[in-house]
Every structure is written in C-alpha cells, then in structure tokens.
Simulated assay, not measured.
Amino acid sequence: MLPDIGAVFGDFTYLVSEVVFGALAFALLYRADALRRAAVTVAALYPLAYVWDWYTLTIGVFEIHLRTGVEFLGIPVEEHLFMLVVPALVVGFHETLHGED
C-alpha cells in the first residue's frame, strides 16, 4: 500500500509532488548539461499544453483534489507547474540516457 501523503500535506499535496518531481527533472537536466535545451522545448510545448489543460478542466474531464485553490489564467497553479515538470522530466531522462558524454 502506498503512503497517503495527502494526509500529511493536505491542500498542498499536488504542489509538493510537482516540486519533488521538478527537482528530479532539474537534477537530470543539470547532470546532462541540458537545461537550456530543455527550457526551449518546454517553452515550445507550453502554449499547447495550457490550452489542452484549460479545455479539459473546463469541460470536466478531470477534477483536481488536494490543491491550493490558487488559480492563474483560469487553471490551478499546480497545473502550470505540471506543464513545466512533465516535459522537463521527459527531456531529462532522454538526455541522461542518450545525450552526449
């Protein structure tokens, strides 16, 4: 059984998870010397991710519990972080596995 971090972090659970995985992404990108390349990729993907996220939240595809309740540009602040962390983590793993040595 997985630990219930929601009982510990409450409304900050989603935010904490984004910070933890964001730190992992940063570490991988730093190690692979790919921070700049990842930033360009994330920036290119962000507008599409934002529209997709806004739309799916608006029509009710999913609902986010255990979040701060702070919104920015119509979506939870945690979702903005998610849209930065996920592609950064993917690029971080890719660069770590296949980048130049």
Rank of each mutant, 00 (worst) to 15 (best):
P76M: 08
I5V: 12
A44C: 11
F26S: 09
V42G: 01
D11G: 15
A43Q: 03
E95V: 06
F21C: 01
D53K: 03
T41C: 11
L29W: 11
W52Y: 13
L73W: 09
L35I: 12
V86C: 10
P3E: 12
H94L: 15
V86W: 10
T13P: 01
E95S: 11
T96G: 01
F9I: 02
E78N: 08
V77K: 12
L73T: 04
A88N: 12
A32P: 05
V19E: 01
V91E: 15
L97K: 04
L89N: 01
T56N: 15
E100D: 14
P47R: 07
A39W: 08
G69W: 00
A34N: 08
G99Q: 10
V16W: 09
E18H: 03
V51L: 14
V20Y: 00
T68A: 05
I5K: 06
V90E: 01
H65V: 14
R67F: 05
G99I: 00
T56H: 14
F21Y: 06
L28P: 02
D53A: 09
V91M: 15
E63K: 14
E95W: 08
A23Q: 03
S17C: 04
H80L: 13
V42A: 07
L35A: 01
L73V: 09
L2G: 09
F12D: 10
V91T: 11
A25G: 09
F12T: 13
Y55N: 07
L97E: 02
A25T: 00
M83N: 15
D4G: 09
L2C: 11
G99P: 04
A32C: 00
Y30N: 04
L57S: 03
D11A: 13
V61Q: 13
W54D: 01
V85G: 05
L45W: 02
V86Y: 11
L48N: 00
P47N: 07
L28E: 02
I59E: 11
L66F: 14
L89F: 10
F82H: 11
S17N: 11
P87T: 05
D53H: 12
E71D: 12
R37C: 05
D33Q: 14
